[in-house]
């Protein structure tokens, strides 16, 4: 009998695994690794202007009220897709400070000319230095920064229409 029971052991182990894996498949997967920087103050930075039309960006510019920090680039296709949503946020009275990654002034101006300019300031990050310092690995990404300069929320990827209320709520929470 002992030997017979041993023969069932692989099946029992497998059933346990299958049950666990099945359960995990039904769980909503948190697709993004949250930045360690959530709850941390912004690192100190001062970036030069990305083109002639707007001033550059620095940490001090986030003082006063909650703002959005949008990391983007003129060469990034999803950034075109998210441009209307940024315009919508701006229309709701949200101040958006941009950081353009590895970009050229002429391209930035061209992009803003074609797809609209929702930004109050744009800093030029030619070597992704600030981008990496705030825990972002791609474009576009958007951060909610409160009045004290603390990172409160991170949105990875382009902002879809359905993401706008969530961002507004996070800005509200950051008051």
């Amino acid at each position: 009998m002992g030997k017979r029971l041993w023969l069932w052991a692989p099946l029992a182990l497998f059933a346990f695994f299958a049950g666990l894996a099945g359960y995990m498949l039904t769980q909503d997967k948190d697709e993004f690794v949250e930045s360690e920087m959530i709850g941390q103050p912004l690192p100190d930075f001062a970036l030069p202007a990305a083109f002639d039309g707007l001033p550059g960006a620095s940490k001090a510019d986030f003082a006063g009220s909650p703002k959005l920090l949008n990391i983007w680039a003129s060469w990034c296709l999803p950034c075109i897709a998210e441009a209307p949503q940024l315009e919508a946020l701006k229309a709701q009275g949200v101040e958006i400070i941009g950081i353009a990654i590895r970009d050229r002034p002429a391209d930035v101006a061209n992009f803003l000319g074609r797809y609209g300019n929702p930004y109050s300031r744009i800093g030029s990050d030619r070597i992704s230095e600030v981008q990496l310092a705030i825990g972002s690995s791609g474009v576009p990404e958007t951060f909610v920064i409160d009045a004290k300069g603390v990172i409160r929320y991170q949105h990875i990827g382009d902002i879809r229409e359905s993401d706008v209320p969530k961002l507004l709520a996070e800005l509200e929470k950051a008051q």
Binding site: K3, R4, L7, W8, P10, L11, F14, A15, L25
Partner: peptide, 27 residues
């Protein structure tokens, strides 16, 4: 995840089935 569920189903069918036959037959 949906494809994952499909592969898990196949896994259950083949491996679960194989281990069941193994348990019944190997003796």
């Amino acid at each position: 995840p949906e494809r994952g569920a499909f592969i898990l189903g196949l896994l259950g069918l083949y491996i679960g089935g194989a281990f069941t036959i193994f348990a019944l037959r190997a003796g």
